[in-house]
Amino acid sequence: MKRTLSVLVENKPGVLTRITGLFARRGFNIDSLAVGETENPLFSRVTITVVGHDQPVEQVTKQLHKLINVIKITDLEPAERLERELLLVKVKATADNRAEIMQVAEIFEGRIVDISPETAVIEATGPRRKVEALIELLRSMNVVVELIRTGKIAVRRGPKLT
């Protein structure tokens, strides 16, 4: 099962290494990772997606807690979280298929952010499922030249803090 861990950490050098190192040596594969400063510049938010069963995930969470620079960890359930991923995908877009590409981007509420005689770059955001659906469609059209996506970020819905 995929889990989304939202980890609040001190914004200090080396913190990310401590976190990723811990995952590696406890045998966890990080599925995606996103890091950025929070509303308070002293803290950063690390959003990690991992695949794992309850007990090992609980164990790795406890181990994460032991890192001195880790302040808080929230295991966000699907229903309580709002999640986004950002995709930048460069596709073949010539005069022949440009209209089609634009249409696909539009359906996925994406934007064309760069264009050349042979290519276009689509920017799309959304929950992972949506981003993956777009990728799948583009792949089936055989137009993907380069694909770059961020790790997932997530926030808790409603007034309660993540």
Partner: peptide
């Protein structure tokens, strides 16, 4: 004293 040892 270490919560990570519990049920490890």
């Amino acid at each position: 004293v270490d919560p990570a040892e519990i049920s490890k």
